[in-house]
């Protein structure tokens, strides 16, 4: 009985937290900027730190994952004499799953954690209060550009990741393992569909982007403003962000590709 009550209490706390996070997101996005030039400037700065600075890790990981996939795929497919299909395997796994998911996980670790820490530190050093005191809404000024930048960057990064993976895969399978150039591409093009594969992958990346960035900025904004509190919030961002990505990925995959 006691357990049931505490479970109920936990559930209500959880619902309340979700509600608070939802209101928080709503308020940051629907308070329009007063000075648009300034707002664009802030957004560019965030695109730089969220997107441009994540580019190297995304390209490098994408290339290596593409190379490894080709090696593994080749050695398995060769047993059935259909090593030409390695392009198909590579493209489908990158576009549907690995591109969006791995990019999102890297993004949670690289950009999400730094968003949380940055906002948490702004809170701890009273910079957020300071904006409020000056009659400037910190949600609009600090949170909104970071959120929007995250939502723009992750889908783009996921495209870059997949493209880097394909290029890495071509290098290994065509350049090194000797798969024929023509059948590599033609089998790939035959089995990859623009709408079901590329667009669905893009939709996944977009959903992950909203989830991770939302978690990151909210954790930063609501953290206990001490060094310990910021540390914990950062960890929570990475853990919750990654779990959210994996859970959402299952739901989205079932919805998109489930009707075989």
């Amino acid at each position: 009985m006691k357990g049931l009550i505490s479970l109920g209490a936990w559930f209500f706390d959880w619902l309340e937290a979700i509600g608070r996070a939802g209101i928080f997101l709503f308020q940051s996005l629907f308070r329009l900027p007063v000075r648009w030039g300034e707002a664009v400037n802030l957004l560019v700065r965030q695109l730089y730190s969220v997107g441009v600075l994540s580019l190297v890790i995304i390209i490098v990981s994408g290339t290596f994952i593409g190379m490894v996939l080709s090696l593994q795929g080749y050695s398995i497919l060769a047993k059935f004499g259909s090593e030409d299909s390695v392009g198909q395997l590579l493209a489908l796994s990158l576009l549907r799953e690995l591109g969006p998911v791995v990019t999102a996980l890297l993004f949670a670790g690289r950009a999400g954690s730094s968003l949380t820490a940055e906002i948490g530190l702004m809170k701890a050093t009273e910079q957020l209060s300071s904006y409020e005191m000056m009659g400037v809404d910190p949600l609009r000024r600090v949170i909104a550009p970071r959120f929007i930048a995250g939502v723009i960057c992750l889908p783009l990064l996921s495209m870059v990741f997949s493209a880097a993976g394909i290029i890495g895969g071509v290098l290994v399978s065509v350049g090194w393992l000797g798969v024929s150039d023509g059948s590599f591409w033609s089998l790939m093009q035959q089995s990859v569909y623009f709408d079901t594969d590329i667009l669905n992958g893009l939709i996944k990346a977009l959903v992950f982007a909203v989830a991770i960035t939302w978690i990151s900025v909210y954790q930063g904004y609501e953290c206990v403003p001490t060094s310990e509190g910021i540390g914990k919030a950062t960890t929570r961002t990475v853990v919750l962000g990654s779990l959210a990505v994996l859970a959402l990925d299952f739901v989205l995959t079932a919805a998109m590709f489930g009707d075989f």
């Binding site: 580019l55 493209a91 783009l156 493209a163 093009q189 590329i198």
Partner: peptide
């Protein structure tokens, strides 16, 4: 940032044309 966005879009076009 401009380069980044162009690169992202180029990757998208590459995937659409060359891969699918």
């Amino acid at each position: 940032v401009g380069c980044f966005i162009v690169l992202g879009l180029a990757a998208f076009v590459y995937l659409a044309v060359q891969v699918s």
